[in-house]
Design a protein around this nucleic acid. Structure first.
Length: 99
DNA sequence: GACTTGACTAGAC
DNA sequence: AGTCTAGCCAAGT
């Protein structure tokens, strides 16, 4: 349910699933994510693309994110700007994100 | 059912 | 800010 052009951290997903401390498990389970899941919008808490067994996957993710208009700063996604806020979903942030 | 592994995080140096 | 360590949860052996 993460909207295009935005990203969420593993911890966020875990929290939404009711397992606030299962961020690590989120990544594990996501290894076998079914088609249709915007897995590329999930990044680590530092806004970076987490390392995995298959390095090519990281590349693909970077490309997909760029394709959605997400600009990377120093190799990481500026969470202050692109982090998906599940509670404010639908609210107009007017392009800029407030605290 | 116990042990290991890993697409994570938060806190301390 | 970058690096290291210790908890955490679920899956695969």
């Amino acid at each position: 349910m993460i909207p295009p052009g935005q990203v969420a951290t593993y911890g966020q997903i875990a929290a939404l699933a009711g397992r606030a401390r299962a961020a690590r498990a989120v990544g594990l389970v996501m290894r076998g994510c079914p088609p249709g899941v915007p897995w590329h919008r999930v990044i680590n808490h530092q806004g970076g693309i987490s390392k995995r067994a298959n390095a090519s996957g990281m590349l693909a993710q970077r490309v997909l994110l760029l394709g959605e208009g997400i600009r990377l700063r120093r190799g990481r996604v500026p969470l202050d700007r692109y982090r998906w806020d599940a509670h404010a979903r639908g609210r107009r942030t007017n392009g800029r994100r407030e605290a």
